[in-house]
Design a protein around this nucleic acid. Structure first.
Lengths: 187, 187
DNA sequence: TTGATTTTTTAACATATGTAAAAAGAAAAT
DNA sequence: ATTTTCTTTTTACATATGTTAAAAAATCAA
């Protein structure tokens, strides 16, 4: 079974009809390491599912690079605000590794939501989870000094650690790479 | 027309049937200044709509008080993660002013979502907006030194400024009240 | 292997912000 | 009006973290 379908179906079951309608709208693509998936300033018109690979959302502010979030295989992602409001993205999305993707357009999502109640339930839950995850991140950003941030990052992103550079980790934590090195250096 | 109904209907139109079902489930209550609406550690079982008043989500970490968000009249709120996952809240919700509320229980929301596609559409959009708002806050927290944070706060919360203490503003910005005073002091 | 490029660490210095405590000011209570 | 309480500002000091630059280590290409 297609992993994207399986993923959605696990969130909330799809009717046979919705499933058929849904699959017929899938588009497939892939991005090489370093390729831009969605550029800051352009509207994100798709919802993505990662079959394989690793992606980051980031932006530059005053010469510092901040990483909003990483997404890896078997996860849905989009540039949330840009997708929902259909406004220009304030983040750039880029492939950290070669990444294979299945996607749905904004119009397809809207149509599927309208036609299939079961699909709208899934999107409702996905957005709810996204809101929850973002809220958790706000709390983390408040809580910690850099050391704590790094420690919880290691736990939360344990399985991705080897695939993410220290520069990117620093960017995710909102600290300089120098600070990150200092933290790692101390016993 | 009931302001909560008007609010929901403006997000996405309700059918007459859904509207009737919905209204019959409303519960009303109010909280005095300083009263706890939902205590940290208890599951938040309701979605709230503020008819009048002002509320904050906060939590204590290492003796510092962080304010996650303010909510004022004509807005929906809940302890998002606690409500969605029905797990104990990590924030306390408290009334800053005397606050009048209309509310729906978790079970009612789930039932309304199941019975009325139009209602699920509304909740989908509310969660989507919540996710977007939280994402925006993450970006703000990254971006700014304390001064910038304060300046954007003044703009964003302009109409609530007189109703929020400087201590609470500092808590929202994640800085000490001393730092906030310093910022306000300089030309 | 060797050289080139990228990533990570280390050093020196400047500064923003936290902590603690006291003073000043405003609001509430009697 | 006077006292009490709460809020805000100010001062002095300690420290975490940013910046810049250079060195070291690791990775990649030829």
């Amino acid at each position: 079974m297609d992993p994207f379908i399986a993923h959605l179906n696990a969130i909330s079951p799809l009717t046979a009809e919705a499933l058929k309608d849904l699959s017929s709208r899938f588009k497939y693509t892939s991005f090489k390491r370093g390729e831009i998936i969605n550029q800051e300033g352009t509207i994100c018109r798709r919802l993505f599912f990662i079959n394989k690979g690793l992606v980051k959302h980031y932006y530059i502010h005053k010469d510092r690079k901040f990483i909003v979030r990483f997404f890896s295989e078997n996860n849905v992602f989009t540039v949330l605000d840009s997708f929902i409001l259909q406004t220009p993205a304030v983040f750039t999305t880029i492939a950290i590794e070669t990444t294979e993707i299945t996607m749905l357009s904004y119009e397809d999502i809207e149509e599927l939501c309208k036609k299939h109640h079961c699909f709208e339930t899934i999107i409702r839950k996905i957005f709810g989870m996204a809101a929850t995850i973002n809220l958790k991140r706000i709390k983390e950003m408040f809580d910690g000094d850099a050391t704590e941030l790094y420690e919880s990052f290691i736990i939360e992103y344990h399985d991705l650690l080897q695939r993410i550079s220290l520069g990117d980790i620093a960017g995710y934590l909102g600290i300089s790479q120098v600070t990150l090195s200092r933290i790692r250096a101390k016993p």
